[in-house]
Design a protein around this nucleic acid. Structure first.
Length: 568
RNA sequence: UGCCGAAUGGUGUAAUUGGUAGCACGCCAGAUUCUGAUUCUGGAAGUCGGGGUUCAAGUCCCUGUUCGGCAACCA
């Protein structure tokens, strides 16, 4: 009794279902063409990753399916080639390939101009002399219809002439626009004679000074989809009201290919913000150190933090696809990451907050090497040697003079196991003037070499350690959620959302002691510091002899959770 | 007091289109463990409200409520 394939396949989301239906019905000759259409005016974040994985993923599920990479670069005042490169990098890093299909809406400016002429000749577009303010006044409100522009009834010839002269640069910026001739009384504000072209005497990052009029999004986007023979044009919910306009342009221009726009809910994540504007505010306000700050949900930030492309793709698959507003818990993202890293990351020992341990009965000046397993989840990762000697570093939190119940770690008179090494028993402590324990004296049991005792006695705790004379020093940056509130935008009465910033979102630890195997770490390396979490070498600030690690994610810490619960 | 859209455990997302409310994360408990990790077992927790149709409603109808989007020469 085997499961049928159907039972193993997750159900299709509403978009995939619809595409499957279209293909089954022979629509578009069974072709599937999608596109990812960013504007090159900022950095990609994980919300974009959702759209990227949807568009590229969906296309990849069909024989011959393709996903185009297209830049919606119709507003030269806010766009820049710099962003094009970073966006391309990010999409590639996520693991997607657009092949030959890299396009720019600006590639279509000539064609789009011709399309505009078609509309004018049909009487479906007119040149309007209203300025910004006047146009707004004519537009009406959501509850009241707008009024026709006084120029709406210009002749086709006059419109053709004026539009050509707009293109020739005869008119001032803002003095004239080309508008669609639709309906100023429409319930849908978007249909109230929207602007198609505006005058902008600005160089474009690709077309230079060729144009001084630029097409608007609504006109450009759908027709670009049509030019590229896109079959399914997937976008986020806020474009829903614009679908009638998307369809209107395509129908009125009379192009043969009419892609289907389908909207889905964009991604929100707990403990962070996603809007471009707010991200920019954090970067410019200095609350973070740049677009690639590891606390940001930007793709470059996640990459620097140590997130893997696969974990982000898995996340995008698991969150599903629907039309309702949603806020995903970061915990789901983190879970996928840990799940992957648990399988792939090699284990190392690193002491973040060092406390000196001296093994009184271990000979001075001697050392030995012990075997340590690189990855218990993957035997092929093999073993390594870890040096042991009389003076060690352990974690400050692994010793307590006056331990609470169920504390399995080191305390006076207690015995614990040093991971892969020996059982040690604490016999004494040395304190500084302030009464802080600065040195812990222990004895070790030579019979327990490797971590097992021949007499079968058990120890409850196993702690990590690093030999003091062999330790490699490093800076470790411990990251936590950028905001303290699940929904940072939910600020108190009159409050600023930035008041929800987590003051402890970054803790920089210097003088951390790492096992020597980590000495040659370079950018791109990652590992698990046992009992701490997953870390990666910071690609920007780390250098040989000046190692910097970022904490990608902590391990689940049941003990800390219990402690916290008992404390509060 | 407009138009459009959406409401299923804490968070997401399914339910053969009218027929056993499933899955994942999170949470709780236990077992295992040389990582208080991992793994394993079990548990708590849900159809926005009110009517109606029907043998049968998360699903269909009516009605209410709540939430989101829309008045850039932005995308």
């Amino acid at each position: 009794m085997n499961d049928t394939p159907e039972e193993n396949t997750p159900p299709l989301d509403f978009i995939r279902q619809r595409v499957a239906d279209d293909v089954a019905a022979g629509k578009n000759d069974g072709r599937v063409v999608t596109r990812f259409p960013p504007e090159p005016n900022g950095y990609l974040h994980i919300g974009h990753a959702k759209a990227i994985c949807l568009n590229f993923g969906l296309a990849s599920e069909y024989e011959g399916g393709v996903c185009h990479m297209r830049f919606d670069d119709t507003n030269p005042t806010r766009e820049d080639a710099e962003y094009v490169d970073s966006i391309l990098d990010d999409v590639r890093w996520l693991g997607w390939d657009w092949g030959e299909n890299l396009f720019y809406a600006s590639d279509y400016f000539d064609q789009l101009y011709e399309y505009a002429l078609v509309l004018i000749r049909k009487g479906k577009a007119f040149v309007c002399d209203l300025d910004h303010k006047e146009m707004a006044a004519h537009r009406g409100t959501v509850q009241e219809p707008g009024r026709d522009s006084p120029h709406k009834s210009r002749s086709v010839e006059e419109n053709l002439d004026l539009f050509e002269r707009m293109r020739a640069g005869e008119f001032e910026e803002g003095s004239r626009t080309l508008r669609a001739n639709i309906d100023m009384a429409s319930d849908n504000m978007v249909m109230r004679d929207p602007v198609i072209y505006r005058i902008m005497k600005v160089d474009h990052h690709r077309t230079g000074d060729k144009w001084c009029i630029y097409p608007m999004y609504d006109f450009t986007h759908g027709l670009s989809d049509s030019i590229e023979k896109v079959t399914h044009s997937l976008c986020s919910l806020e474009f829903q009201v614009r679908r009638p306009l998307y369809d209107w342009f395509i129908d009125e221009v009379g192009v043969e290919c009419h892609p289907q726009q389908i909207e889905f809910a964009r991604l929100n994540l707990t403990y962070t913000v996603m809007s471009k504007r707010k991200l920019l505010e954090l970067v410019e306000g200095g609350q973070v150190e740049g677009w690639d700050d590891p606390r940001l949900p930007t793709i470059c930030g996640l990459r620097r933090r140590g997130y893997t492309p696969a974990s982000i793709r898995t996340f995008c698959e698991r969150i599903g696809m629907a039309r309702r507003d949603n806020t995903q818990e970061v915990a789901l993202l983190e879970h996928g990451l840990r799940d992957e890293l648990n399988r792939t990351a090699e284990r190392r020992m690193g002491v973040l907050r060092p406390l000196k341990v001296i093994i009184d009965n271990y000979p001075e000046g001697e050392s030995e090497e012990l075997d340590a397993i690189n990855n218990p989840e993957d035997e092929s990762a093999g073993k390594r040697k870890v040096p042991f000697s009389r003076e060690l570093w352990i974690e400050q939190t692994d010793f307590m003079e006056d331990p609470p119940r169920k504390f399995f770690r080191l305390g006076i008179g207690r015995e614990v196991r040093l991971r892969y090494a020996y059982y040690i028993t604490c016999v004494d402590v040395v304190k500084d003037d302030a009464g802080e324990v600065v040195e812990v004296h222990c004895t070790y049991d030579p019979e327990t070499r490797g971590g097992d005792s021949p007499d079968g006695r058990k120890v409850k705790g196993t702690i990590h350690w690093v030999s003091a004379q062999h330790a490699v020093e490093a800076q470790v940056r411990v990251y936590d959620h950028l905001f303290m509130a699940e929904d940072p935008l939910q600020a108190g009465e009159g409050g600023d959302w930035k008041e929800n910033l987590n003051p402890d979102s970054l803790e920089v630890l210097d003088g951390c002691k790492l096992e020597p195997a980590l000495g040659g770490s370079v950018a791109g390396d990652n590992c698990q510091f046992e009992r701490h979490g997953y870390f990666c070498v910071d690609p920007v600030d780390s250098a040989p002899g000046n190692l910097v690690f970022n904490r990608t994610a902590s391990l689940r810490d049941t003990w800390a959770r219990l402690q916290k619960r008992a404390g509060s």
